[in-house]
Write a protein that binds this DNA or RNA. Sequence first.
DNA 1: TGGGAGAACATGGGCGTCAATGGAATCGAG
DNA 2: CTCGATTCCATTGACGCCCATGTTCTCCCA
Lengths: 155, 155
Amino acid sequence: MDEFVSTFTNRLDSKGRVSIPAPFRSVLMRDGFEGLYCCPTLDQNAVDAGGNRLREQIRAMLALFEPFSEDHELLSTTLIGESEILRVDPEGRVALPEAIKAHAGIGDTVTFVGQGYKFQIWEPERFLAYRAEAKNRVRELRRRLGGRREAGGAE
Amino acid sequence: MDEFVSTFTNRLDSKGRVSIPAPFRSVLMRDGFEGLYCCPTLDQNAVDAGGNRLREQIRAMLALFEPFSEDHELLSTTLIGESEILRVDPEGRVALPEAIKAHAGIGDTVTFVGQGYKFQIWEPERFLAYRAEAKNRVRELRRRLGGRREAGGAE
DNA sequence: TGGGAGAACATGGGCGTCAATGGAATCGAG
DNA sequence: CTCGATTCCATTGACGCCCATGTTCTCCCA
C-alpha cells in the first residue's frame, strides 16, 4: 500500500514520544524520505505529516510564485518555516516538538488520520469534533449533488 | 536534506557570536559555499542568508532586468552591495556585523527561519509579528486560489 | 473450536553522544 | 605591547539509541 489510510490513536510517553502507526510507517518507508515531515495546517489545529510526496506538493505550490516576490516569501515562511522534520527512532517513534503540541493542543494522546498522500496529527477530542462537523458538511454536499442530477437544480 | 526547513532561536554570546542551527549547517555544507552569504531583505527588517543556491537565485533575479538599466543598478547596489560574507568558526558560529544587527534590530537572541533554498535571520519578536501577518495573508491567498491544489491545509 | 505459542507493535526507561553556549588561550596586525 | 579576531576547550542539557516489557493479534494444532 502506498497511501495513508485509516485512523489510529496512540499515547505519548513521558518524553513526549509517540509511535507512528505501523501501517503509516511502511508507507513512509516506501516513500523513501528519512524522517517525518510535519507542517501545521492553516485552518485547523492539526498537523500535516508525510514524506517526499507531501514535500512535493508544497514545492509545487511554491513554484507557482516568483522567488523574492512577496507571495513567495509569505508562503515559504508559513509553509516551510513552520514545518519540522522529525527524526524517527529505531522503534518508529517521533518526539513532538512544543510548537506542534501547542498548535494542535496535544496533551498525552494523539490521533493519526490517513489522507492518502499525507496524514494528519490531531488531539483526539478535537479530531472527533472536526470529524462530526465534516460529516455534516458532506451530507449537505451530497444533498446538493443529488438535487443537481435529478432536477437540474433543486435548491 | 538539501533545504532549510523549520525555525530555530539561538542566543548571542558576549562577543556577538551565534550558533547556526545544526540542520542548517549541514545544508550549507552540502551546498559547498565557504562561509555564510547574508543580504538584507528588501522590504523587511530581516536578513536573507544561505550559500551558493541563494547567490544563484539573486543572480537569476538580476538577470530579469536589462544590464545598466536603472532598476538593475538599484537592485545590484542593494542586493550585492549590502551583502556580507560571514566566516563560520569551527563550532559553527558566526559573528553578526553591526550593520546587520542594526538593520534587523537584533539584540541578544536571533531566530533562524528556513525558507527552502535560503533562510532568514530575524529578531525574535519582530519575527513573531511578521509570521502572524504572513499566516493571515496566506490564508487569504489560498482562498483566492480556490480550487487549486494545495499542500498546507486539510480539505 | 478452543487453547497456546509466537510475532508484531505500542510503550517505558537508562545511557551515551552531540549541539549550544561560555570562556580561556592563541594568533596577527598596528 | 595591545587590541581585536579566531581557535580551542569545557560544561550542560537535550536528544538519539539501545534494551526491556507487556499486550494484542494471528496462526497453528490438538
